[in-house]
């Protein structure tokens, strides 16, 4: 059976920590970092290695700072 391996790259310096991506992720892959970026926001990061590349986080991200990758492995 084919398996979808995903990954995300988040431009953390532009993240405002709104958490919409975290809320939209069905895999609970993302969370807010305890650290803050230069603007003073906690930013979203990947905390589990289980991304499927479903796009949800990128779709809801108001800042358009999430790039999504998806590799289908058979």
């Amino acid at each position: 059976m084919a398996k979808s391996l995903g990954d995300v790259i988040i431009d953390i310096e532009k993240c405002k920590g709104c958490e919409l991506c975290i809320d939209s992720c069905p895999q609970e892959t993302l969370a807010l970092a305890p650290r803050i970026n230069q603007k003073g926001y906690h930013y979203a990061v990947k905390v589990q290695d289980n991304c499927t590349g479903c796009l949800n986080c990128a779709l809801v991200c108001p800042e358009a700072i999430i790039s999504v990758y998806r590799k289908i492995v058979k």
């Binding site: 391996l5 790259i9 590349g53 790039s67 990758y69 998806r70």
Partner: peptide
């Protein structure tokens, strides 16, 4: 935010231009 916070690094095997979907 998660108390025992571990950030997972980007996987260079997957995060490549050819696999970019968004």
């Amino acid at each position: 935010t998660i108390p025992n916070f571990i950030e997972i690094p980007v996987n260079p095997e997957i995060a490549q231009k050819e696999f970019e979907v968004y």
